[in-house]
Write a protein that binds this DNA or RNA. Structure first.
Lengths: 187, 187
DNA sequence: ATCGGTTGGAACGGTAGCGTTCCGCTGAGA
DNA sequence: TCTCAGCGGAACGCTACCGTTCCAACCGAT
């Protein structure tokens, strides 16, 4: 199999996904916009969900920073900025919101994004652990709720509402979220 | 136009929406599952987006409570419980996540849900105003950020992650969110 | 009893995607 | 230089949906 053909198909797949949504995604069109014959695509993947799962599982897991910044709020700000960096790309944003809706209908996709969810959870877990060591939050803090508190507001704002989030907003959000975590009781 | 036919079409429209997603929604199937001829549907609405907009704009706006509960945290808990009450219905959950993804592609749908967004914002604004009167939060609090902080974590947990949220969780979330709002600096 | 609008149902031509098959060409490795 | 897997392109039969049109049946109001 020629690697350049595979790459072109991969690129077109995500581009079309962002453009039409998963449900409206047509493999015929993916092949066409990739400048590739349908046979070349079907030789690699049997159907849409297999292609999506395979491609998603090969997407970069490059957000494994350690990021010790000295305080809970500084760590939070770093995590929020990292989230914003990802959500800034319009294609990522569209695919992500579409994916969250589609997963209810196509459970196979949920498996494919497990690695991402795990990466995010570990990242936040590390942040919490450092905060506990610094005695900034209770050792009994509810980690699930903490994860929701940290990631959800920014995701909601950027991806769902399509709103802005400048650096000052991120900074204030980090401070406020820090206050929430410091007040967080055990589960 | 017979009202029972319109009702059957409406019911089928939302049922199919929850089942297949907006993109996969076929008016032909809506008419079929409603036990109605296609002509009866097309006599009422010219196309899918018109039908969706019209039906959405007629959906209940029945969540206009005043809900003074004596404290910021009690008010928060009431709002969170109201949100949970809505997100509990699987069909609502599916349609909502699907809608959030679809809006990027079909701006007309955004117009249709404006009333809901406004209702939610006013509800939260009232909550904030009461908290300011009680001197629980700063009068200069960033209301947009407050709205994100209140609604997003629960939406994220229930609708996106598909997680549980028992009454104890809601209560703790209300306490923690309260701490965040009390610490919230002006914009 | 009559009348006029609405109904379910069937059919229309057209578009689009699916997944498969076949063909003649190309280009990289033996 | 030869060979052959992979290539694009085109076509296949099939299914689904679109939006329109027609019809005979129906039914409520006059």
């Amino acid at each position: 199999m020629r690697a350049d053909v595979t790459n072109a198909l991969t690129r077109s797949f995500f581009e079309e996904w962002a453009r039409t949504g998963y449900a409206g995604l047509s493999l015929e069109r993916v092949a066409r916009t990739a400048g590739v014959g349908k046979a070349a695509l079907y030789r690699r993947w049997p159907d849409k969900v297999s292609m999506a799962s395979d491609l998603l599982s090969h997407v970069g897991l490059t957000m494994t920073d350690v990021e010790e910044h000295g305080s809970l709020e500084a760590d939070l700000q770093a995590v929020l900025l990292a989230i914003r960096r990802v959500l800034r790309h319009p294609k990522v944003r569209r695919i992500l919101t579409d994916l969250h809706g589609e997963i209810e209908r196509t459970p196979a996709l949920e498996m494919a994004i497990r690695p991402f969810q795990r990466a995010r959870r570990e990242r936040i877990n590390g942040l919490i652990n450092r905060a506990i060591k610094r005695r900034e939050v209770s050792p009994l803090v509810d980690r699930e709720m903490a994860a929701d508190l940290i990631a959800a507001p920014l995701y909601w704002r950027i991806a769902v509402l399509g709103g802005r989030s400048d650096r000052a907003y991120i900074k204030r959000l980090a401070l406020v979220t820090g206050a929430a975590l410091r007040a967080s009781a055990p589960s």
